[in-house]
Simulated scan of single mutants.
Amino acid sequence: MLRQPDLRAATATAPVLCVGAVLWDIVGRTPREMRLGSDQPGRIVRIPGGVALNIAMALRRAGLRAELLGAVGRDFEGDGLIAACAKLGLGTDHLYRSEDLATDTYMAIEGAGDLTAAIADVHSLEQAGDKILRPLADGTLGTADTPFAGVVALDGNLTETLLAEIAQSPLFAQADLRIAPASPGKAERLLPLLDHPRAVLYVNLEEAGLLCQAQFGTARDAAAALAARGAGRILVTDGGGETAEARDGDIICGRPPKVTVTRVTGAGDTFMAAHIAAELAGADRAAALERALAAAAAYVSGETAGA
């Protein structure tokens, strides 16, 4: 059985730790369909982003405290990003900042509500490695003997080596680990955490297939396959289709409300944050899933803040 911690007790005083990419999102968006070589009129925005930061922002909108652990350069872009996070009410005191590392960037192109292409430059996060985890070891947020016991939202942008170390680390032995791949291309990095007894994985249908080296027609099938591979708790989304949650072999499903999609970057992070917030508020499995799907639908439709 999955050892599920008491979330409300664990976070009564502790913030939710959001570990991973903290960067600038540059998103170009057009309502027109994009093809290879397309040149279309649209809008370009630059906003705070990255999986860890997106989750933190969504948690803060839900009224929760969020603390960032990641790497931000001591450069002009980094200073601006720290200032923007502070205005959003996010904790930045424990970010690792280096003179030698530039602030990371994500660039995406969206056309007609679909992601056309994206490039994630998270080299500084990868080079920083386990330095971003120092507050969990030096007594600031915990130690190996007294590990942090709240919710940790973990971003698959971390290196495969660091994720494997986290899977065995005493620093996370008491945490409620909520884990998201950064993209399908990085999904397999999460394999060492698949059967972690305190992990909850949030993946889409494509990412689930990569983790299982298989193709699935439905989220329910994907969730069942991941559970068979040892995942104690897994949520599999499928865009506007059915979402499935498997927990200790029991599967429940739900569908998001039908909306007009105006953006996609950050939708999965919003879903994950809303699900965490709902459970922290005491919602049961079905209600938490319903709230998360509603929040993600509102986000992609443009009804809530974001890129």
Rank of each mutant, 00 (worst) to 15 (best):
L2Q: 12
L2E: 10
R3N: 07
P5C: 13
V19R: 04
G20V: 02
G20L: 02
W24P: 01
V27F: 09
R32K: 13
R35S: 15
S38C: 07
D39A: 15
I44E: 14
V45S: 08
I47A: 01
G49L: 05
G50C: 08
A52L: 06
A52F: 02
L53Q: 02
I55A: 00
G63T: 07
E67Q: 15
L68Y: 08
L68S: 07
L68P: 06
D75P: 05
G78S: 15
G78H: 14
K87S: 01
L88S: 12
T92H: 10
L95V: 15
S98G: 13
E99N: 15
E99H: 14
L101V: 09
T103W: 01
T103H: 01
T105Q: 15
Y106Q: 00
E110V: 13
L115Q: 04
T116V: 09
A120F: 08
L125T: 01
Q127C: 01
A128T: 02
D130T: 03
I132F: 00
L133D: 08
R134P: 08
L136E: 11
D138M: 06
G139D: 06
T140Q: 04
G142S: 07
T143S: 13
P147S: 11
F148E: 09
V151C: 04
A153T: 12
T161S: 00
L162S: 04
L162G: 03
I166P: 01
Q168Y: 06
L171W: 12
F172G: 08
A173M: 11
A173L: 11
A173K: 10
D176T: 10
L177R: 01
L177M: 01
R178P: 11
P181C: 10
A182E: 14
K186Q: 11
K186E: 08
K186F: 07
A187Y: 03
A187P: 05
R189I: 06
L190G: 14
H196E: 12
A199P: 03
Y202R: 00
V203Q: 13
E206F: 09
G209T: 13
A224T: 12
L226S: 05
A227K: 03
R233D: 13
T237E: 05
D238R: 03
D238V: 00
R247Y: 15
R247V: 13
D248W: 08
I251C: 00
R255L: 14
P256A: 09
P257H: 07
P257G: 06
K258D: 08
V261W: 15
V261D: 15
T265F: 01
A267M: 15
G268P: 10
M272F: 03
A278I: 05
A281L: 01
G282A: 09
D284T: 01
D284P: 02
R285T: 04
A288C: 09
A296G: 09
S301L: 04
G306F: 00
